[in-house]
Amino acid sequence: MEPITVIIETPKGSGLKYDYEPKLKCFKLNKVLPAGMVFPFDFGFIPGTIGGDGDPLDVIVLSEIATFAGCCMDCRIIGAMKANQTERDGSTMRNDRYLAVPEVSELFKEVRSLLQLPGDIVDQLESFFKNYNELAGKKFEVIERVEAKEAYLMIKK
């Protein structure tokens, strides 16, 4: 599978959530997370794609490094969490999360699959997104975890 370009919106360790605003061509502060809650890894999107929520597809980039809002990097897709997100108004939409590893990562250079990740990283990421959405008055429910090949095909469709 060829690498996928990802643009980082919110860096690893940030307690602030940024969103790219295409009309303004910049990153805009969207939210301040509660004290002690931070993004566990870089969070971004795949340019030129559209997810069930109308925004570009979301990607969590597992790496030993933290980058910055606007950083662009080539990543290897290693899987995805298919998920439904219920908004405050009760409407539900698909809002999947793709998991990727930067091509330049040393720590994760051998990882090609969710099954190769150490410990319970995917469980922790799932909990993060559930808590993050709950604090915003939304519900995030993982329907299924898929491995790299299926995730890659979901992006390319």
Rank of each mutant, 00 (worst) to 15 (best):
A69P: 07
N84E: 14
F108A: 04
V104G: 10
G90C: 09
V104R: 13
V101S: 10
C71I: 00
N95Y: 00
M73S: 04
V101C: 09
A83Y: 08
N95T: 02
A69L: 01
G90N: 06
R76C: 05
G70S: 05
R76A: 05
I77R: 10
E103F: 11
M81L: 15
C75A: 13
F108D: 03
A100S: 07
N84V: 02
T92L: 08
G79L: 06
S91V: 03
T86C: 01
E103M: 14
R94T: 07
F108E: 04
I78L: 10
Y98I: 15
C71E: 07
K82E: 15
F108K: 02
E103P: 00
R94Q: 10
N84M: 10
A80W: 11
R76M: 06
K109N: 14
G70Y: 02
M93L: 08
I77H: 11
C75W: 02
K82T: 09
T86M: 08
R112L: 11
R97H: 06
I77Q: 12
L99Q: 02
C75N: 06
L99N: 02
R112M: 10
L107I: 08
A100N: 01
I77P: 08
V101A: 14
T86W: 02
N95K: 15
D74H: 10
D89P: 10
R112C: 13
R76F: 03
K109D: 11
C71F: 13
E87C: 01
R76P: 04
D89F: 04
D96T: 02
E110N: 14
C72H: 03
R97Q: 09
D96N: 14
D89Y: 04
M93N: 12
D74G: 08
V111M: 05
C72V: 14
V111A: 08
I77N: 12
T86Q: 12
R94I: 07
A69G: 04
S91R: 15
R97E: 03
D96F: 03
K109Y: 04
R88I: 04
D74C: 00
N84K: 14
D74A: 13
P102Q: 07
D96Y: 01
C71V: 05
Q85K: 15
I77V: 15
T92Q: 13
M93I: 05
D74L: 05
F68W: 14
R94K: 12
L99M: 12
A83H: 09
E103T: 14
R112I: 09
I77C: 12
Y98D: 00
N95C: 09
K82A: 05
D89S: 11
A83R: 04
A80E: 11
E106H: 11
